[in-house]
Amino acid sequence: MSLSARHARWVLPAAILLLATAALLSLGIGDVRLSPARIWAGLLDRDSMASTVIWQIRLPRVLVGVLVGAALGAAGLIMQAYFRNSLASPDLLGVSTGGAAGASIAIASGWAAISLWSLPAAALAGSFLAVGAVLILARRGAGTERLLLAGVALNALLGAVTAYILSESTDLFQRNAQILFWLMGGLEDRMGMHVMIALPIPLAALLLWPLGRQMDLLSLGEAEAQSLGVDVRRLRRRLIAIATVLTATATAVAGTIGFVGLVVPHILRLIVGPEHRRLVPLTLVGGALFVLVCDVVSRMAGNLRLGIVTALVGGPFFLWLLRREP
C-alpha cells in the first residue's frame, strides 16, 4: 500500500506543514488561549502577556517536544534497521530504563532537589551506564542476538531497581508520585535549560543523515551488506552511538515516553516504503509531529501524562493501519 515514488516525494513537505500547524496549535492552546495573531505579537515581544506565556512556557515546551519526538522517531528507525525487525524500539538496549533508574535514584535520594540540572544529569548517567553495560555484556563485535539478550536482561534488572525504589517506602506518596510522573513522561514546565540539554539531538540527527543508504543494506542482512561493500562494524558502532545519544537525551528532558519509536517509523514505512534515505528525515519530522499532537491532546484532556497519550493515540491508530495492510 506504500505510495509510488512520485507521491512519496510530497510526504515530507506535508509532514513539515502539519508539524508547523501542530506547533502553532501548541503555542495557542492552554489556560490562556492565544490567537495566531497574538502568538505572532508575543513572539515579537509586542504583547507582554502573550510574550511571557510564549517565551517562558510554551515555546520551550514546543521545542522540547519537537526535539524529543524527532529523537525517539529516528532512534526507533535506527533500532529497526539494526535489528532487522520492524518491531524493534529505542528502549531495547536499556537506554530508557537506565534513564528511569537514574532519575528514580536521584529523586529518592534527594539529589533531584538540589539543582534543576541534577535530575536530567542522573537520567543521562543512567542511560549511558546501561548501554555501556549492555555492550560489555554482549562483548564487542558480537552478533545482534547477544546484544538483544543482554538488553533484555539489563532492562529487567533496571526495571527492578525502579520498582524497588517505588515499593521500598510506599508512605512517601509525594516522592513516589514524582517518580511515577517522570516514568510516564511529560513536557510541562520545560524551560530553556531543557532545550539546551536536548541540543545533542539535532547534532546526532545530522550525523545520522548520510547513513540512510547504508542502513538500507544493513536492514536486509549484515553479511550481505558487508559483501556489498558496507563497513558493517563501523556502521553498527555509529548507529548504536547515535541511537543512544538520541534516546538518552530525549529521556533526560521528558521522562520515558513509549510507543513513539516503535509506531512512527512503522507507520511511515507503510506510507513511503522502506528506503532509509527517505525515512531518516521523515521519522525526525514525524516523531516530532506525533509527540506535539499527543501533547496537545494531553493538555486538552486535562493534563493526561504524555506517555499515556502516546500509547492511547498511537495504539488504536497502529491497529487500524495494520488492519488495512493486505
Binding site: 506504500s2 532487522r84 525487525n85 520492524s86 543508504r213 538500507d216 543494506l217 536492514s219 536486509l220 556489498l228 561493500g229 558496507v230 514505512r269 516504503g273 522502506p274 528506503e275
Partner: peptide, 17 residues
C-alpha cells in the same frame, strides 16, 4: 527480507560499492 524493498531497489543495492 524483513522489509518490503522493491525487487528493483534490492538489485540496485549491488551498485553500492
Amino acid at each position: 527480507f524483513e522489509f518490503g524493498f522493491s525487487v528493483r531497489s534490492v538489485v540496485a543495492q549491488g551498485r553500492f560499492a
